[in-house]
Design a protein around this nucleic acid. Structure first.
Length: 206
DNA sequence: CCGTCGATCTCCT
DNA sequence: GGAGATCGACGGG
């Protein structure tokens, strides 16, 4: 398996990257404990011009500073004080684009994921939803800034998912972003059972 | 099946 | 002080 290289994340079209990431494999390895899942749902956040982005209007805080780094590092932030949400920073330095990974299909280390989450049943709730997949994969805010071409968190290449198998919709939980809440920046693999049930996903062909 | 609510960090008003 | 790129427990229908 080939790790996605820096150049992949430095691409300028964040929606194209969000779609390209579908089908690829997100891997974490901590102290030889390896867990991995196929990315089945993503959302694009288009930087300073996107009212739903943490970097909207050029906003810069200690938390969001990493979004301004060159593409290919992790941005993990705490949501609602509890959930750790994993994003990949994209585009060039000072262009704060990012892709939120919203759901994965478990493929490796499932026993470890069950232990980390305390789940009894093996079903989609293990890794469907941005806060759930980080718990299963062991990702937390300490991983902000981790390089994605390293050996702790990375994404392995896989054949491109055909456009006909991708659906787009509006992003979840961004009503406050007004007109930008209507942008079709959420992408998922059609009919994949591991996609989250979050509201907002219209069945729009890409 | 569905609505409500608590958890409790970061940032803005 | 309040809301948020959320989730799961709980109670009612």
């Amino acid at each position: 398996m080939v790790k996605l290289a820096r150049a992949f994340y430095e691409q300028q079209d964040v929606c194209k990257i969000a779609k390209s990431l579908l089908g690829k494999v997100l891997v974490t390895q901590f102290n030889s404990l390896r867990t991995a899942g196929i990315i089945v749902e993503t959302e694009a956040y288009a930087g300073v011009t996107d009212k739903a982005s943490h970097a909207s209007n050029g906003r810069r805080t200690a938390r969001t500073e990493i979004m301004y780094a060159d593409g290919g590092v992790a941005y993990v932030y705490l949501c609602y004080g509890i959930h750790h949400l994993f994003n990949v920073v994209t585009n060039k330095k000072d262009v704060p684009h990012a892709v939120l990974v919203r759901a994965v299909e478990p493929v490796e280390g499932i026993d470890v994921m069950m232990e980390r989450t305390g789940k009894i049943r093996f079903d989609h709730t293990l890794t469907a939803g941005p806060g759930s997949l980080t718990r299963a994969l062991g990702i937390n805010t300490r991983h902000t800034g981790v390089v994605l071409d390293g050996d702790v968190i990375w994404i392995e290449d896989a054949p491109k998912i055909p456009s006909a198998q991708i659906i787009a919709g509006t992003r979840v939980g961004v009503a406050y972003a007004k007109e930008d809440a209507l942008l079709p920046y959420r992408f998922s693999i059609r009919n994949n059972p591991w996609v989250s049930k979050g509201k907002g996903l219209d069945q729009i062909p890409v």
